[in-house]
Design a binder for these strands. Sequence first.
DNA 1: TCTGGGGTCCTAGGACCC
DNA 2: TCTGGGGTCCTAGGACCC
Length: 415
Amino acid sequence: MAAAATILHADLDAFYASVEQLLDPSLRGKPIAVGGGVVLAASYEAKAFGVRGGMPGRLARQLCPHLQFVGGHYQEYQRLGDAAIDVVRDFTPLIERVSIDEAFADVTGSVHLFGPPVDMAQMIRSRVSEEVGLPISVGVARTKHLAKIASQVAKPDGLVVVEPETELDFLHDLPVELMWGVGPVTKERLAEIGVLTIGELAETPGRSLERLLGRAVGGKLGALAWNRDPREIETHHRARSVSAQSALGKKPATAEVIGPTVRHLADRVASRMRAKSKAGRTVTVRVRFADLRAVTRSVTLPAAISATSILAAIAADLVAAALDDHSDEKVISLLAIGVSHLENDAALQLELPFELENEERRPGTEKGAARWVLDRAVDAVRDKFGRESVGYGSVALREGGSVPDDFRELAEKEL
DNA sequence: TCTGGGGTCCTAGGACCC
DNA sequence: TCTGGGGTCCTAGGACCC
């Protein structure tokens, strides 16, 4: 006997744009976009003109001349996103929060309390609408993959239930790009062999898919097309990497540009690691050139680090190495720093005495330890007085950035 | 269409060890 | 000295997701 459809996928519609329309009633019914240089979210009125998330602002304006750019209520995004997901949490503790505006829920054990899953989905939708004021779409199915597709089909502001008996009928008429894991490249590769729908994908031999897309992607898509989705709800997962990047427009690849940027990024990454009591062994940098081609350089250390100055020094070396290998490139458009191979750093969890002695006055103290103490001191001051109160001499960097730091803070928040 | 920021996972080749 | 096979780690790049 087939299991019942008890997985919910709840997804707020056009989230940032809906929040802006909630906060400012004069924006309701109008084409708006959140963002500036790039569209972070578009209202459904804007989507009707072809405006999409991730689209350059200039293009969006061409498509929709009356498009109004709004935004900046980042605290509200977090608050309202949490409030909506908390409504789902009232029905089950088995929640997997995917992002600020989206979560899976397993309500198998809640049926005896709240009735069938479709009733719970409807209650969630009306409660989010009434208590939070935002439209939310819900998909209900037996697996995560189907529930996710169902919520996409349900949008905007809808509910779709996929009963176990109708799963393949539901799935096989849909275009392949609705599948989890099919992006632009995979869609194009499939189109080249005449595969446009999930049904056509299901009919394609597994060997052909693996040859075309690689073993992992081909195997996974083949399984999903036949509705075999082994994924379970994961209520918590730990971070595997921490990174930060900064788009630079077009800047000369000089020490004056690279030095401050690397320090700023290293500061962001390292302070976030310390806040989570993490340290990492692998440092990766990414350098993007004027033509948007990007290269990465990485190094794996014998011991994990989390000190800003050490990370900055290693990252600077890696950037220099990458530029050395591409000495014909004179202009860069992006720098990124990441740290992976994360470990829990027990030492970081200690409350250390708040002292700022310099290295010379601490005989026997290794430089790394002194730097680490300094970093912890900076973290503590920032906790008290705010992020801008102490810097590493690179605060003047912000003028070119198109995405406010508040938004970055939001994106990096533990969900 | 030349575009942000933070992530995850996969692939392929090479080094190294047993 | 040469050779085989398996496993693991590292590095660079790429696709994808929100």
